[in-house]
Write a protein that binds this DNA or RNA. Structure first.
Length: 176
DNA sequence: GCCAACGTTGGC
DNA sequence: GCCAACGTTGGC
């Protein structure tokens, strides 16, 4: 019997803004609790090519993403989501009414791509950015773009950092 | 609201 | 292709 080869998941961090912020009359706030309520969400609105390329070229179904609360009073890691649909054109680039409308994009040559993600869990404990910054010399966290670069709304996380953060946030995750 | 760090744009 | 001007990100 042939066994389907299962690909090991890769890990990422995606940023969302839990604060109220109006864009064209639409409140764009989106926290891990909103993610939980919706269940599945299209990750629209990424308008940075590096972040877009990660979604377009690297993210696969079943990859896991740390869900980060950004641009708010207490920035940090709130939960976990899973990629449930591989990249396809972000429909907001074609929508003239959208804040994310891109006049240079066409259906034939879309410029922006997104994935769909599904809610996995809210971590038992919120891990503030400050806590991670205090640990930035830790060998597991040293290479995180979140800590030594910032300003990238979709970023890769290596396995050792992912496991370390999950253990901080949820002590029994990964335990036997 | 400030502003540093980036990314993008567009004139040349 | 350079690079100054401008816009955005996002912690503080």
């Amino acid at each position: 019997m042939t066994k389907a080869t299962t690909r090991k998941p890769s890990f990422f961090l995606i940023k969302s803004e839990p604060n109220s912020r109006l864009e064209n009359g639409v409140d764009m706030k989106f926290s891990i609790e909103d993610m939980k309520a919706i269940g599945v969400d299209s990750w629209t609105g990424v308008r940075n090519h590096e972040a877009k390329n990660l979604m377009k070229n690297t993210m696969k179904v079943d990859d896991l993403c740390l869900f980060y609360h950004s641009n708010c009073k207490l920035p940090g890691i709130a939960g976990l989501v899973r990629v449930c649909k591989e990249s396809y054109p972000d429909f907001t680039q074609f929508d003239k009414k959208s804040h994310y409308y891109d006049p240079k994009a066409t259906k034939e040559a879309p410029r922006w791509f997104m994935v769909d993600v599904e809610y996995v869990k809210t971590f038992k404990r919120f891990v503030p950015l400050k806590e991670l910054q205090k640990l930035r010399d830790n060998e597991h966290l040293r290479d995180m773009p979140l800590l030594n670069r910032g300003r990238l709304s979709v970023q890769p996380v290596d396995k050792k950092a992912f496991d370390f953060i999950c253990n901080l946030a949820e002590s029994d995750l990964g335990d036997p």
